[in-house]
Simulated scan of single mutants.
Amino acid sequence: MANQKSFLSNKLATELVLRAMRPEDSDAVARIYLESRQHHFSWVKHPKLADFVTDSHGERVMVAVFGNEIVGFASLSEWDHFLHLLFVKEGWQGYGIGARLLEWARQAVNEPLELKVVVANLDAQRFYDREGFVPVRKSQLARPQNVTYRDGRK
């Protein structure tokens, strides 16, 4: 299993393509968003496939493609250097896809990138900590509570 993961990680490092989302990608990206929210965001009541279009409106969306499959995406609000969404398809976590999407977002803005993470999402917090982000605010009143992170590398 470890050798298989290493092999796939090496292939992804050389063959993963990041590109701007196209209209024909919308359904695949919306499915990744919906499935992740259904499995990991218990506070979201009745998530729908159409939520992606609403939640990313006006943002620049980059997709991560391996072979012919979209395996992740990021949605960036450039005017306020805010990474709104970053999702990796179920079963594809741990291969560096999120880090590649994050690097794209960092390069797309001139100011330090900011993002929010729900307090209960410990995996996301560990990921952003590893990637050099630092917590700058905690919103106690938001439901669910969240932490704002800022890129400590810029």
Results as ranks from 00 to 15, higher is better:
G96H: 09
S139H: 14
L102N: 05
S77E: 13
Q125S: 11
Q125A: 14
A108Y: 05
A120P: 00
W92D: 07
R100L: 05
H84S: 12
F73M: 06
A105Q: 02
L86H: 03
H57F: 12
L101Y: 04
W79P: 10
A108R: 02
H57R: 13
E114S: 14
H57C: 10
E131P: 00
K138M: 14
R106Q: 12
G67N: 10
Q107W: 07
H57P: 00
Q140N: 13
S56A: 15
V119N: 12
L122M: 11
S75N: 08
V88E: 04
V117F: 02
D80A: 03
L102D: 02
V53C: 10
G58P: 09
L85F: 12
E131M: 14
A108G: 05
K89G: 00
Q107C: 09
P135T: 14
P135E: 15
V71M: 04
A120R: 12
V53E: 15
G67L: 09
V136R: 11
F87W: 09
F73D: 00
M62D: 07
R130L: 11
L101H: 05
Y128I: 07
A64T: 00
V134R: 14
S139G: 12
G58F: 10
H81T: 11
A74S: 15
G96Q: 08
L101I: 01
T54K: 10
F133M: 07
R60A: 12
N121D: 13
F73S: 01
R130V: 09
V109G: 01
I70D: 01
W92N: 06
G94H: 10
P112Y: 05
R106V: 08
F127W: 08
V63E: 04
V136Q: 02
P112T: 04
H57N: 11
L122Q: 15
F66H: 09
V65Y: 05
Q140S: 13
S139I: 06
V61M: 00
L86Y: 06
M62C: 11
L122A: 14
G132S: 05
R137F: 13
E78N: 09
R60T: 14
R60N: 11
V71D: 04
W92E: 09
A99L: 05
V71G: 01
K89A: 12
W92Y: 15
L83M: 10
G98E: 08
E111I: 01
V65G: 06
V109D: 03
L101F: 06
R100P: 03
R126E: 15
E78P: 06
S75H: 05
K138I: 14
R126Q: 13
Y128F: 14
V136T: 15
H81C: 11
V119F: 11
A120D: 15
M62Q: 14
P135G: 09
G91H: 08
Q93P: 04
I70H: 02
E103G: 08
F82Y: 15
F73P: 00
F73Y: 10
A99V: 07
Q107P: 05
M62K: 08
L122I: 13
K116E: 14
V136H: 00
F127M: 07
W104E: 04
F127E: 09
V117I: 15
F73L: 03
V136L: 00
D51T: 07
E131N: 10
G132P: 02
G98L: 05
A105L: 01
W104G: 03
Y95H: 09
Y128M: 04
E90Q: 13
G96R: 10
H84M: 03
F73G: 00
F133W: 05
D55R: 06
K89Y: 04
R130S: 12
D51C: 04
